[in-house]
Each structure stands twice: as C-alpha cells, then as structure tokens.
Write a protein that binds this DNA or RNA. Sequence first.
DNA 1: TGGTAATCGAGACGGTACGTCCCGTCTTAAG
DNA 2: CTTAAGACGGGACGTACCGTCTCGATTACCA
Lengths: 207, 207, 207, 207
Amino acid sequence: MLGTADTLGSGPRRSARSHAAILKAALQVVDRRGYANASIEEIAAEAGVGKQTIYRWWPNKGALFIEVYGRLVPPDIVIRDTGRIAGDLDALLTQLSRVYSNTPAGVILSGLIAEGQTAGALADQLREAYVVPRRAIIRSIFERAAVRGEIDPLADSDFASDLLSGAVWFRLLLGTHRLDRKFRRQLVEAVVRGVAGLEGSGSENTG
Amino acid sequence: MLGTADTLGSGPRRSARSHAAILKAALQVVDRRGYANASIEEIAAEAGVGKQTIYRWWPNKGALFIEVYGRLVPPDIVIRDTGRIAGDLDALLTQLSRVYSNTPAGVILSGLIAEGQTAGALADQLREAYVVPRRAIIRSIFERAAVRGEIDPLADSDFASDLLSGAVWFRLLLGTHRLDRKFRRQLVEAVVRGVAGLEGSGSENTG
Amino acid sequence: MLGTADTLGSGPRRSARSHAAILKAALQVVDRRGYANASIEEIAAEAGVGKQTIYRWWPNKGALFIEVYGRLVPPDIVIRDTGRIAGDLDALLTQLSRVYSNTPAGVILSGLIAEGQTAGALADQLREAYVVPRRAIIRSIFERAAVRGEIDPLADSDFASDLLSGAVWFRLLLGTHRLDRKFRRQLVEAVVRGVAGLEGSGSENTG
Amino acid sequence: MLGTADTLGSGPRRSARSHAAILKAALQVVDRRGYANASIEEIAAEAGVGKQTIYRWWPNKGALFIEVYGRLVPPDIVIRDTGRIAGDLDALLTQLSRVYSNTPAGVILSGLIAEGQTAGALADQLREAYVVPRRAIIRSIFERAAVRGEIDPLADSDFASDLLSGAVWFRLLLGTHRLDRKFRRQLVEAVVRGVAGLEGSGSENTG
DNA sequence: TGGTAATCGAGACGGTACGTCCCGTCTTAAG
DNA sequence: CTTAAGACGGGACGTACCGTCTCGATTACCA
C-alpha cells in the first residue's frame, strides 16, 4: 500500500516529516482551491517539499487524495450499539455529517469520483477505500439487529449501504451541506422499512 | 439562457453550424479524455472552430457541459402511466440506465458535481438542470399514484426523488455501470415501501 | 531564417515587442549568469514573456543565442581601406576587440561552440553565422591588397581568416580578455608574412 | 592536486577502483551526450558508484573533466627531434590530430572553455592544464631550433604556441574535424615564417 | 583482535529548470 | 459584428539533475 514505510534496502528511508507535511498541505490546499484546482505544485510549496518527493510516493493526485480521504474518514469507525437498528444508523449518519461538514472530505470524494470515471485504477482504489468499509459497517449493524431478532436476517445490507451512501452524497454534494434531523429520520426509515423490512419505523428514538 | 439563438444587432448572428459542431465535439472529447482532461482547445479544434467562439457563448467549461448534459438527459422526459407506481418508477430507471450506459452522461455529471463543489454558480445551475426536473418527474408519478389511491398523498416525493437519484449515481459512478433488474426491483421497493408507505411491494409487475 | 517576420495566414502576427524584449533579456541574462546557466525561464521572466513565446520562435537555447550573437557581431561589417593590408587587418582586430571587451559576445560564442560539438545542426548554423562572413571580410581585404600589388594574389585568405580567428579566440577565451597593441602587431605580422608572403612587416603603420 | 591519492586518517583510503571507474564512465558519458548533457548522475550510475563518491573527490563537473582531459592529452608529451623546426611542429600537429580525432578531447575542451568564461577558478585550472604545458613544448622546440641556428633566438615562442593552438581549435571545433596534410603544412609555414622569422619554408620535408 | 573512523553503494531530500499543455484574452483579416 | 486562426502572458504539468543528506555495510588502521 502506498503511504506505508518501506523496510528494505540500504539507502535512506522515507521521511516521516515530509510525509505528514504533504498530507497536511494537501488538505489545506484542497480546502482553499477545490479538488480540480489543487495543484501538486502548490501542495509541495505549502509542505516545504520538492515536487519529486510527492511523485516519488504517489503516482498521481488521485492516489494522494485517496490517502488524505482515508485519514479524514477512517474506514474502521465502529458504531456503538444503541440497541435498535434505527439508532445505530442514525448514529452513523450523525458521525458522517460531522466529518463532511467540518472537513473537505466531500470535496475530495467528489473529485475522486469524477477522476475515477476515466482512470480505471483510481476507481478500483476508491471502491476499496470507500465502498467496502462502508458496507462492512452497515453489515455489522444489520447483523446485530438480526441477532436481536429485530430484522430479517436475509435483508441485503450491501444494498442498504449503497442506498444510504447515495442519499448522503446527493444531499451533501448537490443540496444543503447538512444532514439535518428530518433528513436523517427519513433516510433511516426508508432503509429500515424499505430494505430491512421492518414495519414500525422506530424513528421516535432517533436524534 | 445560454445556447439559445440570439436575434438582435447588426453583422452576422450566431452560427448555428458552429453551435452544433461545438456540442458534438464536446461530447466526443469528454468521451475520449474524461471530464477533467477535456480541454476547450481540443474541443475547438475538433469542432473546426476558433476558441473565442466557445468563450463567446459559454463563460466556462462547466456551462458548456451543462448544456451538453441537458441534451443527453432531457429534463422533460414524460414517463408513461403503467397504472402502478412501481411500474412507473421502474420505467424511469430503465430509461436512465439506457442514457447512462450509452453516453458519457455519467462522466459529465460527476465532473460537473466535482467542479460545483468549489464553483458556487455552477452548483446552482446544476441543481436547476438536474435536481429540479428529476423531482418534478417523481412528483408527477407520486401524484398519479395518490389520485389512484395507491399511496399516501402526503408522501415526500422530493425525498423519494433524491433517494432514487443518489442510489442510481452510486451504482453508476462507483460500481457496475449497469442498473440491472435486481437492482431496479430493490430500489423501487425501497422507495415504495420506505417512502411511499406501501406495504405490498408490487415488484411482481416489474421488468 | 529564424527571427524574421512571417507573412502568411490570417491570424495574429509575431509580436515585435516580445521579439525585441527576448533578445535584450537574453543578453542581460547571459551576461549575468554565463551561457550554461542562462535559463530560458529567467530570460522569459526578464522579458516579461511566456516561455512558450520563446519556444515558439526558437527551437532551443542555441538558436536563440545564434541570433543574439548575430546582433552583437554583425556579419556585414565593412573595414575601411587604409591602403595597407596590415592597416586593414589591424582595424579589423581593433573592432573585434571592442565588441568582445564590451559585450558578452565571447561568452556566447564559446557556449555555442561547446554546444555545437554535440548538436550538429547548431554547428552548421554557427559556421554560417561566424566563419563564412569572417572569411568574406578577410577575402575582400586580401583582394584589395592583391589589386594594389601588395601581396601574392594566390595567397589563401580563408586560411588567413581561420588563423586570425583562432588566435583571437584563444586570447579572449583563455587568456587576458584584451587584444592589446603588441598582440595585434604580432598577429598581423604572422598573417602578412606567414600567409600573404610579404617580407617587410609593415607594422610600423599600425596602432 | 585533486585526483591524487590521499595519505592520512584511520579508515579506508580512496578506492582506486572507483576512481578509475569514474574517469572511464565520464569519458563514455561525455562521448555519448556531449559536455553540457553529461550529468554526474549518469556518470555515477555508469561507474557503479554513489554520487557522493564523485562529489567527495571533485568539487564540480569541471574539475572532474579537467582530470579526464589531462589523461587524454597528457601535458608532458615529448616531441622527438626531427632536426628541423618544421618537422618538429608537424610531428606535434600529427599527434594532436590523433588525439582529437579519436577521443572526445575536443568536446571536453570546448565545454571546459565555455564553462570557464563564467567560473573564474576553472579558467585558471584550465590555463594551467592546457596553455602552460603546450607553451612549454613549443618553447623547447624553438630552443632546439635556436641552438641549431635555424631561427632567431628571440622569437616569441609563447605567441607561436597560442597561434598554433588557436588555429587547431578553430579547425577542430568549427570546421572539419581533421588536421589534414595541407592544413598542417600551411600552419607550420605560418608559424615558421610569421613568428620564427625563417624565410624558406622547409615544408618540403614535412608529412 | 577488536574498536573506530572514514569510505563505499544507494538513494531520499529541497530545489531549479526543463519543454509541453492549456488557460482565457487579444489581434488580425475575411465574410 | 462574427468567424477561424492563432499569438500572447501565465500557471501547472511530470521529469531530469543538482548538490546535500542519511543509511547500513565494508574496510583498514591503531590500540
């Protein structure tokens, strides 16, 4: 994986200082200029680093921002067990809202997706970095609910995950940049009733 | 609106030949290179047109591609009345699938969204060109269903529209570039049960 | 020839202002940094011009400096007739001394020669720009002297020219950067006696 | 002098293997790429040596190539006594021709001269390495001829040396890369008659 | 005979410049 | 007044080398 320290050879090793400075600078620049206008040149200057040091470790802008994105939205967030599927999903949405409202994660993600339409390799990395972990989280929420007997154990959690992710994107990238309480309630209900098959919405517990 | 024939003044008027050639060239170039790498320079050359002729009629790349997108996904598609909400939605999804599979509409849309994150004006035009007409279509489908007594007349069709749009994007931009029968059935059911409040899925009629 | 205005086509013409500014800047930069360290980047900046504008009109640094050199050492200097071959040659040397002492002509020429060792095309241009006109000047001096009956009409003026040029270079590039009176007298005598075949040196008239 | 074995310290001494490999690689690279494009990076790689090992022993490219040049054109060539000044000079020219035709000595020398125009220290080293020994050779030839009574003992051998060197350069760097028999005869005659003051040329013995 | 200190290969580092692409503006001559 | 053509000042690209630096391994003197 890119961004990991290498261990072999006798020469000098990767500079941790530079690595960190580049990630930080990338974040600042994308926040200031947007994804398409975030130039490697400016990131390097802001990090106090030669351009080559960026190109040495990341093949292109997309790869760099995949790593930046992964630091903003860590793929291993664990959602605490609220005892109800609706509560768990709402907790996830709240957490996502925090990240997307306070960081350029949305700007980065949409830039990566756009770039991924043409660059096939990037699209794969993106799926690995975004879709897979998100689906894993939803799967574990669904499994807890199934064990509890709250929902049908055969409910398609992957579809639920994509439905959730898509709706959140749509909201963040094209509409208001907030996931407010009403939206969260509607979305949780749509998933719970529309995918998990539950009849009562359970949204009274939410928020 | 941009892209419409003008009428006043002395001297020659806007060249319809050039206008058409530019839109066609833009489509070819974005298909060949992707959104970010589609340059005005190449579009002009491909259209056999001076660069200035493009800049005269569209303020920037985004505005040009808003128009291109509008030709690919006309905002006024009317969905025939199948007599069931599930059938209407499925018909819409089928139609969308056709467009996104056979044209660079998805490439353009994702590029526009990414650009819109930073360029506020573009985001507004994009909402106008994409969100508003899509919601109108779904609203009319929901209204027909309410008149029929099939669903609750108070169901939030705008939310349903965004849920649908988001799920379709997610599928097209990050996953398989096909909206297959299973996906369509799941999505229609999620909307019908999760938003419109219907109990029986109605998916037996679908596809 | 490079550096000459073109005449065909309907578009914009070469900017005379930029052309002049580039030549002037090139001269200043080569004077400040030497030939090898004179970068196109700095010349462009100093001229207030885009780099592309330089690359559009000259294929490389060598071609640019061939033109710069040609302006410093115009190939068509005419030496006034002093009535004696020794006087004519001395006048030429005096004139060369002035140019090489007051301008970076020597710096440029040595840079061009070094570059020409590898770039064959440049070597050809260099010969055309330097050797040919110099030989023409010496030939006319020799012809005047032969008409006068001062020297053998069969004397090899081309060899004389190369002998002169070589000696001047050697002096300017490796030794003192002055062509002093003694040197001029020695060199004129060497040419007059050693190539033109004259016995009396005639150097009494010189200086 | 640089490039000479060192003597003090406790650790390992300069690696003779590396030293030789660097000089050999420098020669190959300058032959392949020319002086300006001969990079320390490529020389190090070709020699199988770390860049630092080059920078440890030579302060810059010029210093390295001064040494390379000195190996190609050893400053202590002794010209056998042919019994005639013309013969001695012709023998020297023949020897020079061999070196400059079969090695990149000319490429290196012109590169060094160009670089020396700006780098003062290099110019001094260059004079030491090139002008001084060449003048010494010519001086000894002139002295033999004076002892023999062939020429005026007051003839300026340094000027003769520079005249010769300059003419040879001119021929090698700007013209044909050969010093042919006719050229050698003309040059020897110019020196013998034009500087040494001899009347009969003596060129019948030459070649 | 085991420290110890300079050398070696390798190559990462902060930089400068390269030559190219494209931006959005401007200029020209033709219609 | 529009058009095709394309030059212009400018910004960024991704690459090549610069000269310095750090790393672990090797070597050869000196205690």
